[in-house]
Amino acid sequence: MTALRPNLDFAYSLARAFGGAIIFGLPLLMTMEMWSIGLYVHPLRLLLFIAANFVVLVFLSRFGGFERTANLREDMLDAFAAYAVGMISSVAILCLFGLLSRGTALDELVGMVAIQAVPGSFGAMIARKQLTGGDPDEGEDEDEAKAARSAGYAGQLFLMLAGALFLAFNVAPTEEMILIAYKMNPWQILLLMLASMLLLHILVFAVGFAGQEEPEGFGIVRRFLLFTVPGYAIALAVSFYVLWTFGRVDGNAFAVIAETMVVLGFPAAIGAAIARLVV
């Protein structure tokens, strides 16, 4: 083994991370609202969101980030690296699209990049799982399964939160969220809630949780109460948080906020359900 080997390995990981950052970042890089949202968002809420994203990245690193990690220090290092990849790829693509110019003010640039780096860093972090075919390093998946198992119930719920956050964030910046809520009548909203929970339940148990060895005879009611109900509650809470971050709840009536939460809760619930698949 030469000293170059770990550097080379990490370089490959980084290259994959850039791929992941671009795949997951593109939909939002090409969304008009995202170019100016950094200017509208309340600065403290934006800072809080960046901090929350960082916590999620550290957590995701443990569940199969772009390289194998053994301790919290390495998870933090990987989270920083993922954020670097997210920022660099965002700046590069925004420049390529001609959205950044010399006339762009510093606050505007930072606001734009800080928020675009969120989906980018998420993609960078989960790139390994997504972009590697057969990993030559065997036993790695087993390690992750072990990690997932040791994280237990709380870890599974946190994974749901990460998935919900990612999918909700992907659609939340657009005006359509509120427009859809306006177009729907209360019965349709209730139906959407039911459909979200049903889909969440089916997806969770069709996809299954890695490393979750559930005893046979775990009743459907118990599964529903243990995973689906808290999962949907998490999806709704995440929806509210994302809407609040983007200032979409300010000055709105309580009923409108609740309706928008349910609308955004639909993608959030699906994100929560398939988190195990993508991470």
Partner: peptide, 21 residues
Amino acid sequence: PPTSALEWIAAGLGLAGLLFV
């Protein structure tokens, strides 16, 4: 796995970018 020099650089870049933001 040993923490490689490149990893420290990438993490350092990320930290610097985050602090700047």
